[in-house]
Amino acid sequence: MTKNGWGLVGTGRIADDRILPGINAHAGNRLVAIVSRDQGRADTFAKKFGAQHAYTSFDEMLRNPEVTVVAIHTPNAQHADQAVAAARAGKHVFCDKPMATSVADAERIVRECERAGVKLGINFHNRFMPCFVETRRILESGEIGEVQLVQLEASPGARPGARLATWRVDPVLAGLGTTYSIGVHVYDILRYLLASEITMVSAFFDTPYGVMEETNMSLFRFANGVLAQLSVHEKSPFPHNDFVIYGSKGRIVGRGLTRSRAGGELQVMTVDGKTRSTEFPATNAHGACVAAFSDALLDGRDPVPSGIDGLRSVQVTDAMARSAWGGVHVRLAY
């Protein structure tokens, strides 16, 4: 059996506790190489996860013919150049979110992957949370009628000082704050659930231009007419992490379900006024996302979430930043 030969760049927490275990858990994968700026850290990760090679040079890893797919988990601003280099080397690309920190760079990644004939997938792991899979099934069934309005909160809780020593507070490396670290997952999940594109945004950040925002309050209008109200933040110590989807014949409420590392309850109220509830435990959605991308490579299919999903996310967050900094509504056209 031909296996996917993985190389990973970026040895942070997510790679350590989610992505690398996910790669190794799939029977169709083989971990070939790890890249870190620090040789000692590269060696440690290679030993821990069974990689054959430990590099400090990304280019050197790309020259290894056993590497057929590259997982990119570096600071946001580095994604574009690394994804393009991987594509030009003939490697498939599995990129962490955000795919890039500018629309131009996101378009460049998609273009170069298409030109090289390699697959491009994005780590939008919330799509693999069972609660959202079930929510989409309910919406598609028409059980709550036509969706009219969505309200959603996503937050890890207050993290005072937790990021001060990391690249995530550097606007050059991070691009945006909580919008990128937390928000992109729920912006994408609404596109997935509603099967519609965002056509207008209005956003408010809690900080001025150039300072990493910890709160993003935003409104979306979708092409299908649905309005959404979203709160994404890292300030309050006790977030609900709920979502509510109002339909013409019912309502779906997700209690504590917008973050994959915590479980919660899905409540569905139907036209007769009755409510049914289902408990959903915390799930390893990252592992499921890696597995889906791995399967797509082995089957020769286009992965989902795709590079276009990554591009749409960057287009939306770019519009949000322009709205927040300019105090205006921003329309999107694709």
Results as ranks from 00 to 15, higher is better:
Arg111Gln: 15
Ala87Thr: 07
Val271Tyr: 12
Val232Tyr: 00
Gly250Thr: 04
Leu257Tyr: 01
Val184Arg: 00
Leu266Glu: 00
Gly161His: 06
Met320Tyr: 00
His329Glu: 15
Arg276Phe: 12
Pro75Lys: 03
Ile14Lys: 05
Thr199Ser: 11
Ala85Glu: 11
Gly264Pro: 04
Gly145Pro: 00
Met269Gln: 14
Thr11Leu: 08
Asp17Gln: 14
Tyr192Gln: 10
Arg159Asp: 13
Asp309Gln: 02
His240Gly: 14
Met1Gly: 15
Gly90Ile: 07
Ser36Pro: 04
Met320Thr: 00
Ser231Tyr: 12
Gln52Ser: 14
Thr258Ile: 06
Ala291Arg: 08
Lys119Ser: 11
Ala174Arg: 00
Gly90Ser: 06
Arg127Asp: 12
Phe204Glu: 14
Asp81Met: 12
Ser277Asp: 11
Asp272His: 10
Glu265Lys: 13
Ser236Phe: 14
Gly28Glu: 01
Gly121Glu: 01
Ile138Gly: 04
Asn4Lys: 08
Thr275Trp: 09
Ser155Val: 01
Tyr187Lys: 09
Asp43Ala: 15
Asp272Trp: 07
Asp309Tyr: 03
Arg13Leu: 15
Ser57Met: 06
Gly28Gln: 02
Val253Asn: 10
Ala46Cys: 08
Glu140Val: 11
Arg18Lys: 15
Lys48Pro: 09
Thr178Leu: 11
Arg41Phe: 10
Phe132His: 08
Leu120Ala: 00
Arg259Gln: 14
Ser231Gly: 13
Ser102Val: 03
Arg163Asn: 15
Ile189Asn: 15
Met99Phe: 03
Leu176Glu: 11
Asn126His: 12
Gly90Asp: 06
Leu311Asn: 01
Val186Ala: 11
Val330His: 00
Glu234Leu: 09
Lys3Trp: 07
Leu8Gln: 09
Thr317Phe: 03
Asp38Gly: 11
Ala333Ser: 15
Gly287Ala: 05
Val147Lys: 00
Gln151Asp: 13
Thr11Ile: 08
Glu66Cys: 09
Val244Asp: 11
Phe124Asn: 07
Val316Leu: 11
Phe280Ile: 05
Val67Trp: 03
Tyr180Ile: 02
Ser236Cys: 12
Ser181His: 09
Ala100Lys: 01
Ala324Thr: 00
Gly12Gln: 09
Lys47Ile: 07
Asp105Pro: 04
Pro65Cys: 11
Val184Ser: 04
Val32Gln: 00
Val93Thr: 04
Leu194Ile: 10
Thr2Phe: 13
Gly310Tyr: 02
Leu193Arg: 04
Thr101Gln: 07
Asp59His: 12
Val133Thr: 14
Ala71Tyr: 09
Thr258Ser: 09
